[in-house]
């Protein structure tokens, strides 16, 4: 990578040109209902984990979709797979499979090797 002689701070924008959306693609392919999410927050409102710690499935969805993947994996682990979110989601998103697939995608992807 080219280095300039001065420091460029990472922009605050979501860099849609360079962000890595492979995780999202991995999920889309295996769980198409991921595309149906409208970010209503029903899942995160009812969430067992979300009531005890900072964790929002809705937020994770949008971060993955935008390729803002840093720290997502750490968060995903907190899900208890309890299934409440599936029961409230108005769009019939198969939320738990998304959590599992996202974890899988991160594990498989060399870029996020832990």
């Amino acid at each position: 990578m080219e280095k300039f002689g001065f420091f460029i701070s990472k922009g605050r924008q979501i860099n849609y040109d360079s962000n890595d959306r492979s995780i999202a693609e991995y999920i889309y392919e295996r769980e198409p209902s991921f595309r149906r999410c409208i970010e209503c927050g029903g899942c995160s409102a009812t969430c067992t984990t979300g009531s005890m710690t900072k964790f929002s499935l809705r937020e994770l969805h949008i971060l993955i979709k935008r390729g803002e993947n840093d720290k997502v994996m750490e968060s995903l682990k907190k899900c208890m797979l309890c299934g409440k979110c599936i029961l409230v989601c108005p769009r019939g998103v198969n939320t738990r499979n998304i959590v599992v697939l996202a974890k899988q995608a991160f594990q498989k992807s060399a870029a996020y090797a832990i």
Partner: peptide, 25 residues
């Protein structure tokens, strides 16, 4: 989207929702 409601002893209604714009439950 309000996910659920519950009731307190004095019959008030407690709702759970995510304030999606603030990003907080």
């Amino acid at each position: 989207k309000v996910s659920e409601a519950s009731e307190t002893i004095d019959k008030k209604v407690v709702i759970k929702v995510e304030d999606t714009l603030a990003g907080r439950p």
